[in-house]
Amino acid sequence: MTTSDSLRDTRIPTHASGSVPAVGFGTLIPDPVVTRQATKAALEAGFRHLDCAERYRNEEAVGDAMQEVFATEKLRRRDLFVTTKLWNTNHRPERVKPAFDASRRRLKLDDIDCYIIHTPFAFQPGDEQDPRDERGRVIYDSGVTLAETWEAMERLVDEGHCRSIGLSDITLEKLREIVAVARIRPAMVQVESHPYLPEWELLDFCREHGIVLQAFAALGHAMKPNVLADPVITAIAERLHKTPAQIALAWAVQRGSAFLTTSTNPRRIRENFDISALPEDAMREIKEQIKTNIRFNSVVETGVPGFIPRAE
């Protein structure tokens, strides 16, 4: 991991090629107009890593925001690291490339820096993103394995336009299975992680294999118990004249992971980007004194992201 004078400029190398900006902006924002505004604000604030997904239904808005900023010539495509994700209904190998190409068109990009399997669960293939039976239960697809989907992802890298591939919402056990059979290893895995769910064992495995661990819900997604109200975090924030969010995000980067943070408030977006290195005693306090351990999102058990509202 290379760190410049500013923690926010940290880049984490991968086994694939190049490196990943540790500080990332997530685009899980329901309203396309607000998505466009927030994405522009994030790029103007200094974010150079954008995380998107077919499932968010707003890739076009993110693409519009990028093109607007590119038109100002203050930013070029090569300055950005852009990820997007394959949704669960497209796990069948023959559906992977069409889904990838559709995301590229919506994002108005020739190349994607990292294409990620959104969850390791395959849903019934089709246009309905949230297939349910008459009892409201998810309809899974038993006709495809994660390894078969991964092979189709590898072919995207072979064919060009996809620089690297990754996984999201995955357990260490499942990640081990893919690494064991992969011809092209994951460059990045996205998992829920924050001071209440540090995932140290998974982080160690990722480091060993040249995989970037990227934390989503890095601030606990404002759920209870509230990470940002933790007395250890708030005491450090007061001592260092930073916000609790800046402390939690700095901790994420300083320990060797990347993170995603999402906001629609320009001031908050700038604040979340403005992180700086923590003293070693603060890092030690967070690791040793915080005892709460909780997962807020059960997606690793079901494939249904808990932070995405179901379509009616």
Rank of each mutant, 00 (worst) to 15 (best):
M1L: 12
S4G: 14
S6N: 14
R11K: 13
I12F: 01
P13E: 09
T14C: 00
V23L: 07
F25L: 00
T27G: 06
I29Y: 07
V34Q: 15
V34W: 05
R36M: 02
K40L: 12
A42E: 02
A42C: 06
A45D: 02
R48G: 00
L50M: 05
C52D: 05
A53L: 08
E54M: 05
Y56L: 05
A61Y: 10
M66G: 07
V69L: 15
A71Q: 09
L75Q: 04
L75A: 03
R76C: 11
T83Y: 01
K85I: 07
K85G: 01
W87M: 11
W87N: 10
V96T: 08
V96D: 04
V96Q: 02
P98C: 10
P98N: 12
D111N: 14
Y115I: 01
E128P: 01
R132K: 14
V138W: 10
Y140C: 09
V144N: 01
T145M: 02
E159Y: 07
G160W: 05
R163P: 00
R163L: 12
S168W: 06
D169S: 15
T171R: 02
K174E: 14
V179H: 11
I184R: 11
R185C: 11
V189A: 04
S193M: 08
S193Q: 10
Y196G: 04
L197K: 03
W200A: 13
L202E: 00
L203E: 01
H209N: 09
G210N: 12
I211L: 01
A215T: 09
F216D: 00
H221D: 15
H221M: 12
M223D: 10
K224F: 11
A229I: 02
I233S: 03
I236N: 06
H241N: 10
A250L: 01
A252C: 10
V253G: 03
S257M: 13
A258T: 02
A258P: 00
T262H: 05
S263M: 06
S263A: 11
S263Y: 07
T264P: 03
R268D: 00
N272C: 09
A277E: 14
P279N: 12
A282W: 04
K287C: 05
T292I: 14
N293L: 06
V299Y: 07
G303K: 08
